[in-house]
Nucleic acid binder design. Structure first.
Lengths: 99, 99
DNA sequence: TTATAAGTATAGGACGTCCAATAAATATTA
DNA sequence: TAATATTTATTGGACGTCCTATACTTATAA
């Protein structure tokens, strides 16, 4: 059992995925790289793929297969959900960010 | 089973507790009120007290009993941990906040 | 003193996020 | 064609966050 940090900032992965997909389409592997490196290192498949599966099932994202990659984009309700959640996120955390 | 929102921003409670205690001492009930109302409504005892217990056990907070209240403050390592985590938090989320 | 309110606390369950390990499918290279 | 690399995917476990429900302790009010 390895616990590097007492507070580990685990969370908000689905929100971060929507955030990245807001600006550009990405495949799962790219999302694992982009989101992971902000925290420490690339996210493992066991982290990113279940999250994408859940977002698919909730129809917040859709994808287009190209070769062995699946390029994800936001659905209309995914965009709406992202904006709604971002508003809430700002309300909760803006004080922390500006301090 | 009630799921209001697909993305529920669950997380970072311990971090938020440290953030509040950075500026002022609070008892558990006050923290439940302050942190909860930013999201929606007051956090329940089953949410706030286990989190405080964990922070106590990790020696990030300490408390002073006054009447039936326990007033929590950051320990030196609690302050250090807060600053370390805040830096990481900003790295991860500043792009989202400024958008 | 007894009842009530305030504040703290735990148990139990659901869920999302994280990893390591394993596997499968597809594209590329030898 | 066969071997390798890339990308997707699942399983299983640990953990923190969230709730409801229940209970305990201490202070205040009747």
């Amino acid at each position: 059992m390895v616990r590097r940090n007492v507070i580990d900032l685990r969370g908000f992965l689905s929100f971060q995925i929507l955030h990245e997909l807001k600006r550009k389409r990405f495949c799962g592997d790219e999302l694992a790289e982009i989101i992971g490196k902000k925290k420490s290192s690339k996210l493992t498949p066991g982290t990113i793929y279940p999250a994408l599966k859940n977002l698919r099932h909730n129809k917040l994202v859709t994808f287009k297969q190209e070769g062995r990659k699946k390029f994800y984009t936001l659905t209309p309700s995914g965009k709406k959900e992202y904006l709604r959640t971002k508003k809430l996120f700002k309300k909760i955390f803006k004080n922390i960010l500006n301090g």
